[in-house]
């Protein structure tokens, strides 16, 4: 595939990883998000101000309906803010079109979802390879090396040629982590990555993420309402009714 490479960003990728230790990745300023359901308007996010820098490991906590997913979707360019300023890698995304947003997702962000993470018809290897093929800037050998590297890191080196449905939920989330990391994103967004897992597996996933955060220097932003998992985070942003009530 010949995807237009996000030229303005890809060359800087390696540089940022090494040079800037504290670099602003995500910057939200007075962000509001309103959902309109016919007559009723729901304000899912209210006046959000948030900055996340490289190498951070941030948890977004809050009860159900507090706006965690909405926040992550806006940061992940899956959803757009109603107003305010959203900058990703110092680039304002509010006015960008779908094509440009897709590029940002491909090149700068990694995603881990609660479930339905993987493409069911592809095996694990192919699933991890998928975003690399979309980027299309690596040779076959380079891709293979990367895939093996991350598969090893998440501990799935001998499951590579299985289909997603042959793996357990925890294993699937590990694949999702590997896939999210394989493109070397600035930040990995994970919306309740442990919600479908038992607590032990959930913890191991969070620990894995933490380890990778340290070894790969990739920033993580994940949401959860599980107190024990929140404890693992270095920084916790608490949401309530769409507002940030604490950030520590």
């Amino acid at each position: 595939m010949n995807f237009p490479k996000a030229t303005q960003t890809t060359q800087t990728t390696q540089a940022t990883q090494t040079v800037a230790e504290k670099r602003e990745l995500i910057h939200l300023e007075n962000v509001n998000k309103n959902y309109h359901l016919g007559e009723i308007s729901v304000q899912a996010l209210k006046d959000i101000n948030l900055t996340i820098s490289s190498c951070e490991f941030v948890a977004v906590a809050g009860p159900s309906g507090s706006g965690k997913s909405t926040l992550l979707n806006i940061i992940g360019c899956i959803d757009t803010a109603s107003d305010g300023e959203v900058r990703i890698d110092r680039e304002s995304v509010l006015s960008l079109h779908d094509h440009a947003l897709t590029n940002i997702r491909l090149h700068k962000i990694g995603f881990i979802f609660q479930s339905f993470n993987l493409i069911p018809v592809l095996n694990i290897y192919d699933n991890i390879e998928f975003p690399l093929l979309l980027k299309g800037n690596l040779s076959k050998a380079e891709m293979k090396e990367k895939i093996y590297h991350f598969a090893r890191e998440v501990g799935l080196i001998d499951q590579l040629f299985k289909k997603p449905h042959e793996l357990s939920g925890g294993q699937r989330q590990r694949v999702a982590i590997a896939r999210a990391l394989v493109t070397n994103p600035y930040i990995v967004l994970a919306d309740e990555p442990t919600a479908n897992l038992d607590s032990i597996t959930g913890r191991s996933i969070i620990n894995l993420m933490k380890t990778i955060n340290e070894t790969e220097k990739t920033a993580f932003l994940f949401s959860t309402h599980d107190q024990t998992i929140i404890a693992e985070a270095k920084r916790v942003v608490r949401l309530h009714d769409g507002k940030i009530i604490s950030d520590e």
Partner: peptide, 16 residues
């Protein structure tokens, strides 16, 4: 839908 959604989320463009 979900599969396509995941593909789109992780960076597959519409034309893809």
């Amino acid at each position: 839908t979900k599969e396509i959604g995941v593909m789109r989320a992780i960076g597959a463009p519409g034309p893809f």
